[in-house]
Design a binder for these strands. Structure first.
Length: 430
RNA sequence: UCCUCAGUAGCUCAAUGGCAGAGCAUCCGGCUGUUAACCGGAGGGUUGUAGGUUCAAAUCCUACCUGAGGAGCCA
């Protein structure tokens, strides 16, 4: 008999089905055993009454330990007592692969232990739910840009020049030359915007920051749109539309997973346009009134960000930062030349910055000047300057960290659970 | 890089200078509707490593190793 996906088991109610998967948990009571089987699409309870099955089937059910792979055949029926609403009365249980002494028990474990067993931990229901939400968000990202006729441009992972300083770059040998793992696809997207108009890239990025917090990974996935002739106001709207689209998608298609994660959906339902916006100057004033010792020119730390977001249930857009604390390529505000047309989007509930973006400098002379001020090696950027030499145009873009979005949407504490195999300061295994 | 905390059974944790313990997991037994099932029994230890103090160290001291939480920086 052909196997049925457990997610589709309800369609077989009243008839016989065969499922293949792994034993998630088992409870027994003398003459009856309950096997919870998972196959990646869902969970189903299989009931094995001793009186109704062959001795071989009874023995197989008894021998099956946590995470043994199994094939179970039986009659499907609705039953309120079963988790999921349907259960199978097993007529045959076959152990496909035994699983002696599975290390992750249904009880509590520490972070280090679970992270060393990440390859097994992803079988656990909550981890499984997070990674399914991540997959849905990846699909939603592709859909959002496809619907808006963006062209996906894959930027290189191995690069010769950096967007920001070289201190946070992973260096590697490239046939005797130095190469670096990409920190951002932006420099490669700007030329592509001149070729295609609306473009985006989506892939892994690498930061050798020695940061050790729940908001940082050394390898994370970033999605970056870049749009020709888009100016700052339009950029803010694009970022807003994007986040609203992604959160709505999670609510529409990840209900089961969010429920398993005990995520409060009402908080996500409040993520609607328009998002509150403040400028950096206004933010500094608010913070000073609340007693924070901050002045124009200071970077906003974690506590400051949390204080600014405290009043809002929607993401907050902070814009127009001092030129000195931002990257070399950001366009100055014509109304206020001390600040640049950059934005940070801060997620509510303390999840912090999920998006950073800006309008880019399109004037060649100004960009050359900024490269010099930031002491960046001019030669490495010659090709990038060509974007301004041959038909320059105003343009803007942003980057969104996928793991930060997923952590926020799922309501999980640490970014390391929002990626299948996290890379952190102290972890490159498994 | 800095600050703080923690390393004891496979896992989560007790034992505060005086006999190394419990729950879960594993194995054995019991129970015909379990929901992290429950009940009884068994096995399981170089207390992170090295040194020191002491009649006596898991416990106090020193160094190192490993991990966690936070800061800075960022997405």
């Amino acid at each position: 008999m052909e196997a049925t996906a457990i997610s589709k088991i309800g369609q077989r109610a009243g008839s016989t089905a065969r499922v293949r998967g792994w034993l998630y948990n088992k409870r027994s009571s003398g003459k009856i055993q309950f096997l919870i089987v998972r196959d990646g699409t869902g969970y189903v309870q299989c009931v094995v009454p001793r009186a109704d099955v062959s001795p071989e089937t009874w023995e197989a059910a008894e021998k099956a330990t946590q995470e043994s792979s199994l094939a179970v055949t039986g009659a499907v029926r609705e039953d309120r007592r079963a988790p999921g609403g349907f259960e199978m009365s097993a007529t045959a249980v076959e152990i496909l692969g035994p699983s002696p002494e599975y290390p992750i028990s249904p009880k509590e474990h520490g972070v280090d232990f679970l992270m060393n067993l990440r390859h097994l931990w992803m079988r656990s229901s909550q981890q499984h739910a997070v990674l399914r939400v991540r997959s849905e968000m990846e699909q939603a990202i592709a859909d959002f840009f496809y619907e808006r006729e963006f062209v996906r441009i894959d930027s290189p992972i191995l690069t010769g020049s950096s967007v920001e300083g070289t201190s946070t770059l992973f260096e590697t040998d490239y046939f005797g030359d130095k190469a670096y793992l990409s920190q951002s696809g932006q420099l490669y997207l700007e030329p592509a915007a001149a070729a295609f108009g609306k473009v985006y890239c989506f892939g892994p990025t690498f930061r050798a920051e020695k940061s050790k917090t729940r908001r940082h990974l050394t390898e994370f996935w970033m999605v970056e749109p870049e749009v020709a002739f888009l100016e700052f106001e339009g950029l803010c709207e694009l970022a807003e539309d994007f986040v609203v689209f992604l959160v709505r998608r999670a609510l529409e298609r990840c209900g089961e997973d969010l429920k398993r994660l005990e995520r409060d959906g009402t908080k996500l339902e409040k993520v609607q346009k328009p998002f509150p916006r403040i400028t950096y100057r206004e933010g500094i004033r608010h913070l000073q009134q609340k007693g924070f010792p901050v002045n124009f020119g200071d970077d906003l730390g974690a506590d400051e960000e949390t204080a600014l977001c405290a009043e809002s249930e929607r993401p907050l857009i902070v814009s127009r930062f001092p030129t000195a604390i931002k990257s070399f390529y950001m366009q100055p505000d014509p109304q206020d030349p001390e600040v640049v047309l950059g934005l940070d989007m801060l997620a509510p509930e303390g999840y912090g910055e999920i998006i950073g973006g800006s309008q880019r400098i399109h004037d060649l002379a100004l960009l050359e000047k900024r490269l010099e001020e930031h002491k960046l090696p001019r030669e490495a950027y010659e090709w990038y300057l060509d974007v301004r030499r041959y038909g320059t145009f105003p343009h803007a873009g942003f980057g969104m960290g996928l793991e930060r979005l997923v952590a926020w949407v799922c309501g999980i504490h640490h970014l390391r659970e929002a990626i299948p195999y996290p890379r952190t300061l102290k972890r490159i295994y498994p």
